[in-house]
Nucleic acid binder design. Sequence first.
DNA 1: CTGAAAGCGCTTACAG
DNA 2: CTGAAAGCGCTTACAG
Lengths: 364, 364
Amino acid sequence: MTPQPGDDRLIIVEMSRKMSDVPADSYRRRRITVKDLARQLGMSVSTVSRAFYKDSVIASETRKKVLLHAAEIGYQPNPLARGLITKSSRIVGIVTSDITNPFYPEALNQLSEQLQSIDFNVMLVVTNKSRSQEDAVRVLLSYHPDVVILLATTLLSMASDACRRVGTPVICFNRRAADTHSFSITCDNELGGRMVADHLIDRGHRQLAFVAGRPDAATNVDRWRGFSTRCVERGLSPPRVMGGQVFSYEDGYAAALNLLKTPDRPQAIFCANDILAIGALDAARRELGLAVPEDVSIVGFDDISMASWPSYALTTVRQPLRVMVERTMELVRGLMQKDLSQPVLQQFAGALVERTTTGFVDGS
Amino acid sequence: MTPQPGDDRLIIVEMSRKMSDVPADSYRRRRITVKDLARQLGMSVSTVSRAFYKDSVIASETRKKVLLHAAEIGYQPNPLARGLITKSSRIVGIVTSDITNPFYPEALNQLSEQLQSIDFNVMLVVTNKSRSQEDAVRVLLSYHPDVVILLATTLLSMASDACRRVGTPVICFNRRAADTHSFSITCDNELGGRMVADHLIDRGHRQLAFVAGRPDAATNVDRWRGFSTRCVERGLSPPRVMGGQVFSYEDGYAAALNLLKTPDRPQAIFCANDILAIGALDAARRELGLAVPEDVSIVGFDDISMASWPSYALTTVRQPLRVMVERTMELVRGLMQKDLSQPVLQQFAGALVERTTTGFVDGS
DNA sequence: CTGAAAGCGCTTACAG
DNA sequence: CTGAAAGCGCTTACAG
């Protein structure tokens, strides 16, 4: 009776009751409109409409009546119709690609929660295959979002170009914009890289290595720049680099294997993000039987929730996500008020969180 | 120069260049409309409009001309205006709450990718604090999504009620619907629970325990029912139950601690999902120094990507996510064609994936 | 302070 | 096969 592994066989239950048993008119029911309200209240549609806007001139008594009745019958203005007039959809489009990196769900979570709280709705576009990316963004833009947030490390320059063409402001979250038309909100990745270098060097490490993520990701580039620059400033030779495909567990694992299986292995590895670092950690411990941090120190970046799990207890740089989200919201609010005196690039310092994967090198 | 941990201090760079330097009219640019097209082509708006619909009567020559010119100047019909007439927004609303469980980003990923490929856009509502949940769903519905997908284990009955009230079909993904107005697409969780029981009992385990997730989650209830029923069927007493707060790492950790620190600890623990199981695993190994599976076997449910990482290599039940997504798409397509002869509840068998966290009990 | 009218960008009977 | 007209549900000058 127990299905075999890999057996995706289909079990359809309760096929018998179908939706055709349900009264057909329970779908496509007529929606309540402003006309209904007006008729029921004996007012004009103009007046009813005005009740929903803080700064339109209307007797407060009248407004109260309208709002009360609206609440009773469950009416609310149709934002699609409204958008036609006001040119504001109260939609913010979020386009993302790396949704498998837990940092992004976390960011998406906070972002959309905040956005909802000021009555914005988020339209989500996930782009994995670059094939459909162009289509997806085109469709997104056809809904005329008030602003687009690019939630990804990679460039998506096509997306921001398309936005600029139709005049939609774009906010790059967690990466610097490549163009000069977008706003950017990021962690100070270069500073983060420097902090890691200092942390490691202060603890006596001399042979350092870097496990890279996507080479076209601004986060990857900046973290590397800060890290390597600081190493050189402090008299070390530039760290070795490994990896450079994607930000995945598998890549971190493979890169660490390459780095650590040779006799002249590095004393410490800085990985471009936590997922890579966790892969590296598993490679070191599970596959090679090395002790961390005794045999090698490992550092990540992001501080995703898994970084603090006891199996990993990873030393990492924490992204100031809360602050980043807050400032994004301010940016959105400002943009809606046509306040263009906003900083174009905002970077926030992360914090080095020391856990168990870095230690002191003997004799230092 | 290195900031201290916890120091979220703000660094604003490039404050100097502001968006006010950018020509103001680069925002709020006039959009191209059907009228522009009509004028430029010397046709009526009706004709132009018809070109965009497969089954409207129009000379194929004319259509070709329109579509070509539209592509050139980057015109596409405004779905908001269109929706006003057709009553179809081509929006599907997805409401989710457990976005921190990696199973959901994965599902969201596949779902939105598929949806995009048939020209639907997804409007995402994340509900953490139940406070705003009602608001969020109300706002979502005001955009008149064609269908709403409830992507969560918990009941969200408020959400599905609200949908029914306005006549919007709802699909429950990964849980059985509580009401009779919704469609459901799930893994056969009860069968999965039975499979785990068989797996464990076949390997000689007799003292079994269950680490529960949210008690109001259908997944939790069904997995438990299958598991405990099968245990009893095979002559065991009902397993002990622990936990029952949320589906989190921390809860799995705490529950396993409770279960395992007593001398009469169970021989095997089935956790309601992988995140709980991974927490349990860490508790057993890291905190209590137990060997898994020698001292205790641990099984999860979902088969999220972390389950296959070497640090965990968790035995678990794999959800047939691909199939579930496919059927959801068929359901959506069917619903759009007013085909109500669709099965109300579809459940699919998962597959037990045996990795390293379950073994044979001595002497069996 | 309120109402009648025009119009946002579309689609769709209805004539021709 | 094509066009003129009405209308989707709203907002906003413009009069009063």
